[in-house]
Design a protein around this nucleic acid. Structure first.
Length: 251
DNA sequence: TTCAATGTTTAGAC
DNA sequence: GGTCTAAACATTGA
């Protein structure tokens, strides 16, 4: 599912493909001559910037896909055409995703916490202090707290840090906090290198599946042996989400 | 036929 | 305001 590594993968690919091109106006019922000057990402939102300061925003939610020169399918929600006849296909089987055109994108900068792979240890320790009663897993997924982590990578980060998802912030030792912080950067960056996780629907901007699925240690591995200690991976409900962890080596 | 899955938002309870 | 829970959004497939 599109979390930070998946959206960042799409961003890097699209940047190479569409910067410098001009959006063909009628494709989005807007004025013509929208020259693309950049492709950014904030949290899980992809941002295409135009030379006049306006932007297109995309959120892929659960099943969204953005494919450069992709094939139309029955789940295609919109086709963005460029002046050189290339096109960007927005597919979304479940229609949770959205795109919108905005005159300026200042608001979305403030809407989220620091970018997960970029936060430094001091800042991470600082924001944790403000939420001492929170459980660590839902907190990692709170985009206003820290931006980019969803259900898959929160499970994987906590496994790598050997911390159970139910732990409250105030019970975490400095060592554990450092381990979580270290693995936020490590796992997200590694997942970007593998072009994300294709659990079901996700494909990158070239229509290819990501390779990180085979590196998952706990997510969707309920009942299987823990690769670290031989314990059995457990799945529990936290709110309406599932959390996966090894009860033997995550404390 | 029912239910779980995913990310986010919103609403309400405490 | 923090925290938790549930519901809603749409669709599929187990």
């Amino acid at each position: 599912m599109p979390e930070l590594p998946e959206v960042e993968t799409i961003r890097r690919q699209l940047e190479k493909k569409i910067v410098g091109k001009t959006l063909d106006g009628p494709s989005i019922s807007l004025r013509v001559n929208k020259k693309i000057v950049g492709v950014r990402r904030r949290a899980k939102i992809l941002i295409i910037d135009f030379s006049d300061g306006s932007s297109l925003l995309f959120h892929l939610k659960l099943t969204g896909q953005l494919i450069f020169n992709g094939q139309l399918s029955k789940h295609t929600r919109h086709v963005f055409k460029f002046s050189d006849d290339s096109q960007l296909i927005f597919n979304d089987m479940r229609k949770f995703g959205w795109w919108k055109y905005v005159k300026d994108s200042k608001d979305i900068e403030k809407a989220f916490g620091p970018e997960a792979p970029e936060i430094n240890l001091k800042a991470f320790q600082g924001i944790l202090k403000k939420r001492l009663n929170a459980k660590i897993k839902p907190l990692l997924m709170d985009q206003k707290f820290i931006a980019g982590i969803g259900n898959i990578y929160s499970d994987e980060i906590l496994f790598a840090a050997k911390v159970q998802p139910l732990r409250r912030v105030k019970t975490l030792t400095p060592k554990e906090i450092k381990a979580i912080w270290l693995n936020i950067g490590k796992i997200l960056k590694e997942a970007i290198r593998k072009r994300g996780t294709s659990e079901r629907d996700y494909v990158d901007a070239l229509g290819k599946k990501g390779d990180y699925l085979k590196y998952l240690k706990v997510y969707r591995r309920e009942g299987q042996k823990c690769s670290r200690c031989g314990g059995i991976v457990k799945r529990i409900k936290m709110g309406s989400r599932s959390a996966h962890f090894c009860p033997k080596c995550q404390r």
